[in-house]
Nucleic acid binder design. Structure first.
Lengths: 340, 340
DNA sequence: GACTGGCACTCGCTACAGTCGAGTGCCAGG
DNA sequence: CCTGGCACTCGACTGTAGCGAGTGCCAGTC
């Protein structure tokens, strides 16, 4: 495809200028602001080639050039180094995350931090239940025919569900149930629990069986089927930066997409181990987000990954900076989780 | 102030037309669409008076009239009847809320329902801890020096916190602690707990005292001080309806306000018993929301109120409709909570 | 063959003038 | 007190013209 070093440098310069000024960049401005060592005319020739190859385009005939999604992709893959964080940013991360008292707190602080540092919309997935193990199951009698099932996962997540019992169950039986359930399930990965739950029913005494059966369905629902992923969001106000230029004038589709947990999960939840993923413009599968880019990564204690986090913004975003920030925050959160 | 019936009818007509068409309304259009029984010229005279009194204004000299915040206020207080809900809406409410399995589920469904029915931004406050009583406290050993404290409130809310212990505590002691704590606190309103917690420390054996002291601080934090209010939000995409006319062109301040839990709580959380509150434009205390109106009410099982819910939208909103919907949804949610 | 300076051209943006029409305020008459 | 009529205002829209940023191309130079 014949892109020599200088053409790549031109592309890089176009991306950088456009990201920072938000205006189409012309050949003259380019040579003035970057040391390309050639004249505007030469740059124009290079730009013609870049345009032919689909890396940049002209909004109007007599305007400067703007990177295409493909151009950003090339930039991210080959032309940018991850920016090291400034000491101020490192300090901000630590200051923000120190003192979190529980998982909710950690997630909320993280999502706000990300939004603030990147000035984009931030998304943080709670540690996925599918990747958690059962730490403890608690049964709390609410009335004679109602139990509250509380599941505490090793990732810190706590899920509760109400269990309607087929008939009144004495307190001693509840104690038995609690013991049985914990003996069988504590320590198991949530994804491995279905056969164990079945075994619980099979092995229980005739007396407890009806209650255990009822309990088991709720257990399965809580642990596996309804396996609720939770999501925290912050910084939507950042979408309005850059006037109405980004997102071709309408925030509507973006806001709609952000309300769909399913969409967000697809965007940030499916990260391969320890990779930072960048989705640019129409690379992502949702029509509503064709004008947006997403930078996401997985996080978790140590090397394991329990959830995803990331930021969403206009395709015209500071990729190197955002990638660096997302990675750094994910690492800090991982360390925080490892301590607990 | 000399507003006779016809002038009020004119104001009502202006509000209704403006809300539905979103365009300044002129005298001619008014007499055509409403049976006022007088000529445009007469209506113009009335409008001149209404303008003098501050109920309507002209965006430009040669344009129609638009209601002011004060005009909406008069409309809401004296000129509108609450619209009865359509059967379709009633059905939608029931269909939406039936089958909720826990509090989170109820709140999420409610907020989505509200957003969908009113086509505005919906806000639902979780049942306030301050208005809840302790149903049960659970202590779950995480390691020898760490406990997970889980508090289950009668409103269905479940809060958890990690407790760092000053020294290892054997399992039997945890059982004792659990019993002591529950004996003392179960059934108490959260706001009444501080002296009880103090009593727990004072009465505990020398052996348990250090642990109990540590536990008590976390208890107080969880139950009272950090008494976290939680909020669910939906329908932000509705802010983009009506182009950029509403909110004078910028969603920014609105989105910023919606990210502040404190702001939302002030808006919907401070409702006097069983009243529906309407805040119009600059009646609310936040500068960011001067272009917005809020309709909110309290909800709870039976006659008690445990939290607030409401909608937020442009001052140009369908007040009668939204008031009716907010009330109806609050009533349904109250019934749902009463069942549990 | 690669780069450069020069030049004609395109086209969006802004300013300005002119027209149109919705809507008003006022007034005289019923 | 209401009404029809009338002059007036002023925003919205249209068309024209000039400006200027930016381009593509070409002939000339190293």
């Amino acid at each position: 495809m014949g892109l020599d070093d200088r053409k790549l440098a031109v592309l890089r310069a176009i991306v950088e200028d456009y990201v920072s000024t938000q205006e189409p960049v012309g050949s003259k401005a380019l040579v003035e602001r970057h040391q390309l060592g050639v004249s505007p005319a030469t740059v124009r020739n290079d730009m013609a080639v870049l345009e032919e190859e689909g890396y940049i385009r002209q909004p109007h005939t007599s305007a400067g050039r703007v990177p295409t999604d493909r151009g950003y992709r090339l930039f991210v893959d080959r032309l940018s180094r991850v920016k090291p964080l400034s000491p101020a940013e490192r300090r901000a991360i630590e200051r923000f995350l120190v003192g979190a008292v529980d998982l909710d707190d950690v997630v909320h602080r993280t999502v706000r931090l990300l939004a603030q540092l990147t000035r984009q919309v931030a998304v943080v997935q709670y540690p996925s239940l599918a990747r958690s193990s059962v730490r403890h199951l608690e049964l709390v009698p609410i009335s004679t025919t109602r139990l509250m099932l509380v599941m505490i996962a090793d990732t810190g997540r706590v899920e509760q569900r109400l269990v309607e019992l087929p008939r009144p169950v004495p307190a001693d039986d509840v104690t038995d149930l609690r013991r049985l359930v914990n003996e069988k399930l504590a320590g198991a990965r949530l994804s491995d629990t279905p056969p164990l739950v079945q075994a619980l029913v099979d092995e229980s005494s005739a007396e407890l069986r009806p209650t255990m059966t009822m309990l088991s369905t709720v257990l399965l629902e809580t642990l596996v089927e309804r396996s609720e992923e939770r999501i925290a969001l912050a910084g939507t106000a950042n979408l309005t930066r850059g006037g109405l230029l980004d997102f071709q004038g309408s925030l509507r589709p973006i806001l709609e997409a952000l309300e769909e947990e399913v969409v967000l999960l697809k965007l940030i939840g499916e990260t391969e181990p320890s990779t930072t993923r960048v989705l640019i413009g129409d690379e992502n599968e949702f029509d509503n987000l064709r004008a947006a880019s997403v930078v996401s990564t997985g996080y978790g204690p140590g090397a394991t990954i329990v959830g995803g986090l990331g930021v969403l913004g206009p395709t015209r975003m500071d990729y190197p900076g955002n990638i660096a920030t997302v990675r750094a925050v994910a690492r800090y959160v991982g360390e925080l989780l490892a301590q607990n």
